[in-house]
Amino acid sequence: MDRVRLGIISALAVNEELSFVVLRELLGVTDGNLSVHARKLEDAGYVVIQKQFEGRKPKSNYRLTVIGRKAFEQYLDEMEQMIREVRGG
């Protein structure tokens, strides 16, 4: 998985909702980069993007979907299993 996409999922796993600005700052990526990766996660059904207006300014909020959370948990389980196998072997 890509570093930025993994960062987005990890951040949303511990926060119910994060805005575009917060995610961008947190991950240290450009606007374009974040948009592209977030769109891919949205297409995969892992995140939902809610667009709204705060005054006249558009604001995008990101949330992890149930599918996204399950996929992340499964991913962590698999990683854990891999580490256990490496340590055991």
């Binding site: 993994l6 960062g7 951040a11 926060n15 990683m79 891999m82 580490i83």
Partner: peptide, 22 residues
Amino acid sequence: HQSSEFSVEEQLKVIRETMTRT
């Protein structure tokens, strides 16, 4: 999880750091 882009250790590092920062 098996990606050629970066290792398992690095992936864990990204997860840990992002969660801590968040």
